Measured scan of single mutants.
Amino acid sequence: MQRVNMIMAESPGLITICLLGYLLSAECTVFLDHENANKILNRPKRYNSGKLEEFVQGNLERECMEEKCSFEEAREVFENTERTTEFWKQYVDGDQCESNPCLNGGSCKDDINSYECWCPFGFEGKNCELDVTCNIKNGRCEQFCKNSADNKVVCSCTEGYRLAENQKSCEPAVPFPCGRVSVSQTSKLTRAETVFPDVDYVNSTEAETILDNITQSTQSFNDFTRVVGGEDAKPGQFPWQVVLNGKVDAFCGGSIVNEKWIVTAAHCVETGVKITVVAGEHNIEETEHTEQKRNVIRIIPHHNYNAAINKYNHDIALLELDEPLVLNSYVTPICIADKEYTNIFLKFGSGYVSGWGRVFHKGRSALVLQYLRVPLVDRATCLRSTKFTIYNNMFCAGFHEGGRDSCQGDSGGPHVTEVEGTSFLTGIISWGEECAMKGKYGIYTKVSRYVNWIKEKTKLT
């Protein structure tokens, strides 16, 4: 034993070699072989497995989906700052455009905790909710729209109204504003409101030439003092309507412009014939205590009207009353817009006519005020429907199939267009061939041609 100890002390290297040989010859039971080890760690190889990531292109799944990435790591994937920024906006807080917040056709661009709407022409605001041009839906104005110097929408209202708090709607500024039905039992019968379409306001006024200088022999019209197929109006439903009495009662109609003036057809009036105007009328054979009678003290036909040349060209006249009318729910003026808007309103496509005229061709006159909704007829169809001249200051309205029309005794009465609950004068009943005849239409004086003249002559002093 002493000898062994001496050998170990003198030859430590020998001992180490012996131990190493023993270990190498022993069977290893701690580690699995290569094949079995792979069965336990069965993990798919990654895209760049075996390579240094710093030297390969980034992978979106590896960089940002398996674990949260930084902007720089995302930049490695896209290799483009702009594309990385677009991805980053949604990656950080989701897609803010998912709810489609942009209105009126706006395009949404996502941002971090926010979004941006790219608005089409005519709109602005956070969600493109603000109209900035009158060309689109009248700028959301209830009545009139004008573009300011910086191309912003400025709404306005006709006389007797003021802008509401929203700067879009119009509200009454006087007790009985024009064009409004205020009798409670008839307010439910107000005709369907007309909503502004998209309009090209630059070209809204037709490029028409008034044929002022045409000389033409007097034409022989049949029954051209021209509501057939209409309905009984309720008291106060058309408070701007008046009836004219002269040699015979209810020979023509008219509309209240203001307390002192009536507008009617020029062919209705004769110099030297006494005319009485009755406002607030409903049943011409009954006294309903809503009527107001006034005498006409002055007749002003349009300066281009000449019955000797043509009885229905420039067929418009103004009547001055001896005493002002007292405005109330049964006696209310009709609204008159400017030339541009009167023309736009007419193009809405349908209007209402009213009167006490004959209820059928050569038949009896109506006792109760009649009204009828009539569609506008395109000019080409209008011209083809008659052998008589249709001037540019006239328009056609009615039904091709016949059966409904204005008729004798309705002449001078109103053709009105309702705009968001307020009625505007767009025409004056003038003439036609018979009444409600198939293929024939009622012919009306186009008020847009005469609004400046009306307003100039009827100013209240």
Rank of each mutant, 00 (worst) to 15 (best):
K89V: 08
P101N: 02
H303G: 07
H289F: 12
E72Q: 10
Y161C: 01
N166T: 03
G125Y: 00
V202I: 13
E270P: 14
N135W: 06
Q185R: 12
G13Y: 13
Y341I: 06
Q237N: 08
L244K: 01
Y341D: 06
A26F: 05
C18R: 03
L211G: 11
I297T: 09
Y161M: 04
G229Q: 12
P414T: 10
T158P: 04
W356G: 03
T85R: 06
G363E: 14
V77Y: 10
Q143W: 00
F121Y: 11
N5S: 12
C108P: 01
I336W: 00
T29M: 14
G272D: 09
H34M: 10
T461P: 14
Y444V: 05
R294N: 01
G160W: 02
C97R: 00
R83T: 15
E159H: 06
C435E: 03
G253K: 09
N104K: 02
N104I: 00
E72C: 03
Q408A: 06
C117H: 01
A207F: 07
A250Y: 06
F399R: 04
H361R: 13
G21C: 07
V174P: 01
P414I: 13
I262D: 00
L130R: 15
R379V: 09
E54L: 04
F238A: 05
D198P: 14
I112A: 15
A366G: 11
G403T: 15
T342V: 03
V153I: 11
T194Y: 13
T445Y: 04
T276I: 10
V377R: 05
C435R: 04
T417E: 00
E82T: 10
K362F: 05
L244S: 01
L383D: 06
Y22G: 05
K293C: 05
E434L: 12
E323L: 08
A380M: 09
R46H: 05
P101A: 03
E259F: 03
Y330T: 02
T194N: 09
A380D: 13
K137N: 14
T81I: 08
G179L: 00
H415R: 00
E320W: 01
G412R: 03
E35W: 06
K234R: 13
E27C: 05
K446I: 00
T458C: 06
Q408Y: 09
N5F: 10
L23G: 02
L319R: 00
R298N: 15
I112K: 13
E82S: 09
N283Q: 09
V30Q: 15
E142I: 04
Y312R: 10
N328Y: 00
L23V: 13
P324V: 04
E61I: 07
I297R: 10
K45E: 15
V153G: 08
E193C: 05
V183Y: 12
I443V: 08
I136C: 03
S430N: 11
E193D: 14
T209L: 13
D405N: 15
F399D: 10
K51W: 04
K311R: 13
W240C: 00
I284Y: 08
T342S: 13
N166F: 02
L318M: 03
G230I: 15
G58Y: 04
W453C: 00
S25Y: 14
E420N: 09
Q143E: 02
D410H: 15
R298G: 05
T381K: 06
Y115A: 01
F87I: 12
D200N: 09
G246E: 05
K339H: 10
K362R: 12
V419G: 01
L383F: 15
Y450M: 02
L318K: 00
R43V: 13
V326F: 06
R384P: 07
P301M: 11
R358V: 05
L376D: 01
S204N: 06
Y441D: 01
G427D: 01
E418T: 06
K109L: 05
C435G: 04
K446A: 08
R180C: 03
E208R: 11
G253H: 08
K440P: 07
M394H: 11
G58V: 13
K39R: 12
V195N: 14
V195M: 12
G230T: 14
K234L: 09
N113S: 05
V174N: 06
L32T: 08
V273R: 13
F224T: 14
K446F: 01
G105Q: 05
G357F: 08
C157L: 01
F196N: 14
C97Y: 00
A250S: 12
F196V: 12
C102V: 00
Q185C: 06
N138D: 04
T29D: 12
T426M: 00
S220Y: 05
T158H: 09
N304S: 13
P301Y: 10
V56K: 04
F224H: 10
E420I: 06
T209H: 12
W356E: 02
L189R: 11
V359M: 12
V228T: 13
R43D: 09
V183W: 10
Y444C: 03
Y161A: 02
F388W: 10
C128M: 00
T458F: 01
S406F: 15
V257P: 00
A266E: 01
V368M: 13
P175A: 13
T225G: 13
G94P: 10
F31M: 15
Y91I: 11
N59D: 14
E259S: 09
G409S: 12
E281Y: 07
D131I: 05
N166G: 04
K109H: 10
G105I: 00
N48Q: 08
E165D: 12
L52S: 15
I443W: 10
M437S: 11
I17H: 03
F360W: 14
W431K: 13
T426S: 02
V257F: 02
N38L: 09
D33C: 03
G236Y: 05
I428W: 04
V202K: 13
C128L: 00
V202Q: 14
E27G: 10
P235K: 10
T85N: 08
E288T: 06
Y341P: 04
T386K: 08
C117A: 00
E116G: 03
W431C: 11
